[in-house]
Design a protein around this nucleic acid. Structure first.
Length: 872
RNA sequence: GGAAGUUUAGCUCAGCUGGGAGAGCAACGCCCUUACAAGGCGUGGGUCGUGGGUUCGAGCCCCUCAACUUCCACCA
């Protein structure tokens, strides 16, 4: 027989468990005849290790998968990782740079080899971490966003969208990363509040002292100015309309035009227009047919338009030209302002709005489909529901999606340009006469492939078995910060290409913040490695911590105390199990429903309530509620009460009673282990295997617990608990040590209750240290003692020596006041016609019962008071 | 500028469709009771951000204001 160690040792418990599950192949799909239940993991980037955010996200998914598997579903949890184009390329470049290698010297092919090597390396880290977390992933179905199958899906989608006119190539202002030399989508730009300088320049009227003042934060773009724009209703500048002014940076003459876009009250009321370097100016350029001249190179240096500043970095050039213009008098002033400056998410350099030829997805038609779909009965359900609004708002305000990236690491765009003409070929297959073509060198935005993740991982666009069986996904689990980037894109691609929603539900969770409530970021260095927590407290503690006390969609604050509390809770379960194993061993006891005692029915009833609540709340994704229900059942009812009470029965002379207790303890423990298994898989597995003395059966392959049918609900046992609790309080409050023996008289006017008391006398005696209990004896009126009035029961402890009669009279009077107040309240409510008419009958019945209890209590208290008064 | 969230015990947070406020940690008192002292038993502590409203009844629903947080969009 396998015994449990005296203390919970998470290292020993978790050692080898995952390998056991893998060996048993319990995570592989297709083993159940039940309906499919599918989750695809949000693929982590292969740029680094998993953080606590991944830990919450995957824990939630693992709970769902294990729970559904125990319920008989054919579960599939698809693992995978994201190639994370820009992020990975930036890391690989940096690593090469550290070795003194330039990627251009290396060449595209060799660079990709390096990138794949990087991917393998980081995939190993991530696999190791998934293992430590205990995730029930089906590795036979693992995918990568850059694998061959996904490439097929990606090219298929690109070509289809192109043929439908939803992908186009265009020259537009995009966010340009001068360091990585690639376009970025809007969401790859991080805006940070900064102190910037606002420069005011004179755009002079030729042969005059007059000028139009114009402000800019980016003077280096002035070399490409095409005009000055004013508002036609602005009296200050109207006289200059259609005249020419001198651009002070290069002395070019530019026209003054008018457009309502310019606000009279803002700034100087006049703005310079640089169509190739600013998105709003670009629109004006289109509107007025301006030239789109660029004055910056792709690396952020000034080009030949900058004349003497050509070749200087944009910011160096800025300093220089400002200095020069200060000297020649065209600089009016410099103000320091607070504004938002866009930085590249990956290279952390200031993003340059830049005119460039890129590929775009036309978003309007796709977004409208999503909005329409969410108005249908078949809509995707968001948990919590409010996040649907975030999606819809994003869809309503969406702009075209720039999908081309000037990178090597990614899906190369399936477009071929004919060398001898300007014809292009957009095709899933390379042209046969490839020597006459050159493929577009750019790759697609990473999100272009991750947007297909829910179905591409299942074999789409082939109509494969997996796709048929496991699509759509049951639920998508992710944090709220990724709804825009990812969730919305999966939805419109899913609807467009699979003609159905990609997942039935979307479960949104919050972020893990540090102990001070700050976001965990690299720059703050306040990140916590989940692996460190697992080493110290175990994966089970971490997992329990991550979901307990958390409301859906809200952030969690990291707390080492709470992780310790989680560990303590597991230790409690461990010890309870150890006790049960010690007393029952491996003997098999059948639960004989007909022969159970009240106490057994009482705990089974509580257990049944637990099973029902937990099942309901898991289906509602209310993991926080699951934790609190499980915790209070195990801690309060099962450990503090039932196990302690069972100690009496386990020592009983009566074989039946002993067997009842053993059977209930063992049955409920197994039930508890099953309920807890999805949350804390390792320790429950360990205890379960000890309990059945076999390491052959994995707990996750057993059935989810159901209610145990019992003959009565055992609620009358609450009288016993009330009595014990009140005696304990009495002793504690009166500085009587708990083990001090007392005499105890109990009376009640209810015959049924008296019967219950009689039958459970052994428990009362043991826990109140009352060797002799007198039930329903007329209490001698002259006797002095402590009277405790409970619902339907009055306790009396004859204890002259311990009792200060005067104080006791004061106490009882206080009590009487309280009860009178309660009676008044109850009568008030019950005399309220509206209440009687409108309140649910259940509530009315409750209030009536309370009132009659209170009246009875008052009567008892008054009698007690009379006796004390007679003796004082 | 637009949107969302948060405000409950000393701290960190639960509180599901409105029916007399809960947990963990901390504090205090007692207890080495043979599963557990990383424990047990017990106690104290909240006018649920403000001001109104709806209702027989509001922490929960509606409105006002305040503070904090986040997201989106940003004007030269």
């Amino acid at each position: 027989m396998k015994e449990l160690e005296t203390k919970y040792d998470h290292l020993k418990v978790e050692e080898g468990k995952y390998d056991f599950w893998l060996k048993k192949r319990v995570f592989e799909s297709g083993q159940s005849k039940g309906p499919a239940y599918t989750i695809v993991i949000p693929p982590p980037n292969v740029t680094g290790k998993l953080h606590l955010g991944h830990a919450v996200d995957t824990t939630l998914q693992d709970i769902l998968i294990r729970y559904k598997k125990m319920q008989g579903f054919d579960t599939l949890w698809v693992p995978g990782m994201d190639h994370a184009g820009i992020a990975t390329q930036a890391k690989v470049e940096a690593r090469l740079m550290a070795q003194g290698i330039n990627k251009y010297d290396l060449g595209r092919e060799n660079f990709l080899k390096q990138s794949w090597a990087w991917k393998e390396e980081y995939a190993d880290f991530i696999h190791e971490q998934w293992k430590k977390l205990g995730l029930s992933l089906d590795y036979t179905k693992e995918r990568f966003t850059l694998d061959e199958g996904l490439n097929k899906a990606v090219t298929h989608v690109f070509v289809s969208l192109y043929n439908k006119g939803l992908i186009y190539q265009g020259e537009r202002i995009i966010n340009w990363d001068i360091k990585l030399k690639t376009a970025l989508s809007n969401i790859e730009v991080i805006y940070k509040p900064s102190k910037s300088k606002m420069y005011y320049f004179k755009y002079a009227i030729p042969n005059s002292q007059e000028y139009i003042p114009v402000a800019t934060t980016r003077p280096e773009t002035m070399f490409a100015d095409e005009c000055v724009v004013i508002n036609a209703r602005d009296p200050r500048y109207l006289k200059y309309l259609n005249k020419m002014v001198i651009n002070p940076s290069n002395n070019e003459l530019v026209p003054v035009i008018a457009d309502n876009y310019v606000e009279i009250d803002f700034g100087t009321g006049a703005m310079k227009c640089t169509p190739a370097h600013d998105p709003n100016d670009y629109l004006l350029g289109k509107k007025y047919n301006l030239r789109f001249r660029k004055c910056l190179n792709k690396d952020g240096t000034v080009n030949e338009l900058g004349h003497k500043y050509a070749g200087l970095d944009r910011f160096v050039a800025r300093e220089e030209m400002v200095k020069d213009m200060l000297e020649n008098g065209s600089l009016i002033k410099i103000e320091t302002i607070e504004n938002q400056v866009g930085y590249s998410e990956r290279s952390d350099t200031i993003v340059e709005p830049y005119l460039s030829k890129q590929w775009f997805v036309k978003m309007k038609p796709l977004a409208e489909q999503v909005i329409k779909y969410q108005k249908s009965n078949d809509k995707i359900n968001f948990y919590p529901a409010r996040f649907e609004k975030t999606l819809i708002q994003w869809m309503e305000n969406i702009e075209d999606w720039c999908i081309s990236r000037q990178l090597w690491w990614g899906h190369q765009i399936p477009v071929w340009y004919r060398k001898d003409s300007n014809k292009i070929l957009v095709s899933e297959k390379a042209p046969t006469d490839i020597e006459n073509y050159k493929q577009d060198e750019d790759v697609l935005d990473t999100w272009f492939s991750s947007a297909l993740w829910p179905f591409s991982t299942l074999g789409w666009p082939e109509n494969s078995h997996n796709y048929q069986k496991y699509y759509p996904n049951s639920v998508l689990v992710t944090a709220y910060d990724i709804i825009f980037f990812w969730v919305s894109r999966m939805i419109f691609e899913g609807i467009e290409f699979t003609h159905q929603k990609p997942f039935n539900d979307v479960l949104i969770h919050g972020l893990i913040r540090d102990e001070q409530g700050r976001k965990m970021t690299k720059s703050l260095g306040n990140g916590i490695d989940p692996m460190d927590i697992i080493a110290k407290y175990g994966a089970d503690s971490l997992r329990y911590f991550l979901i307990s006390g958390v409301a859906p969609g809200l952030d969690t604050r990291f707390s080492i105390e709470k992780i310790e509390a989680s560990w303590n809770f597991i230790n409690k379960i461990w010890n309870a199990s150890r006790y049960i194993l010690m007393n029952i061993g491996l003997e098999d006891y059948q639960l004989e429903i007909d022969k159970l005692e009240l106490v057994d029915n009482w705990i089974i009833n509580k257990y049944n309530e637990l099973v029902n609540k937990v099942t309901l709340n898991l289906d509602k994704y209310e993991f926080g509620l699951v934790c609190s229900d499980v915790y209070s059942f195990i801690y309060d009812y099962f450990c503090s009460w039932y196990i302690e009470l069972a100690k009496v029965n386990l020592n009983s002379d009566n074989l039946q009673i002993r067997n009842n207790s053993k059977a209930v303890l063992k049955t409920l423990l197994i039930g508890i282990l099953k309920i807890l298994h999805p949350i804390m898989p390792f320790v429950t597995e360990e205890i379960y295997q000890s309990l059945i003395n076999s390491n052959e059966v994995a707990l996750v392959t057993t059935n989810w617990p159901k209610e145990i049918k019992i003959k009565e609900n055992g609620n009358d046992f609450n009288y016993i608990i009330d009595i014990i609790t009140s005696i304990r309080s009495f002793k504690s409050e009166n500085n009587i040590i708990p083990s001090k023996t007392i005499s105890l008289y109990i009376k009640s006017e209810n015959k049924e209750i008296l019967k219950v008391l009689e039958e459970n006398r052994k428990f009362i005696g043991k826990f109140t240290y009352a060797p002799e209990i007198v039930i329903d004896k007329d209490i001698n009126n002259s006797e002095i003692g402590k009277t405790i009035v409970l619902n339907n029961i009055t306790l009396f402890i004859p204890m002259t020596s311990y009792l200060n009669i005067k104080e006791e009279i004061i106490n009882i009077n206080k009590n009487i006041d309280k009860i009178n107040f309660e009676i008044k309240r109850g009568e008030g409510i019950l005399n309220n016609k509206s209440f009687i008419e409108k309140a649910p009958p259940e509530k009315i019945r409750e209030e009536k019962e309370k009132l009659s209890n209170n009246k009875q209590k008052l009567k008892e208290l008054n009698e007690t008071l009379a006796i004390l008064n007679n003796n004082s």
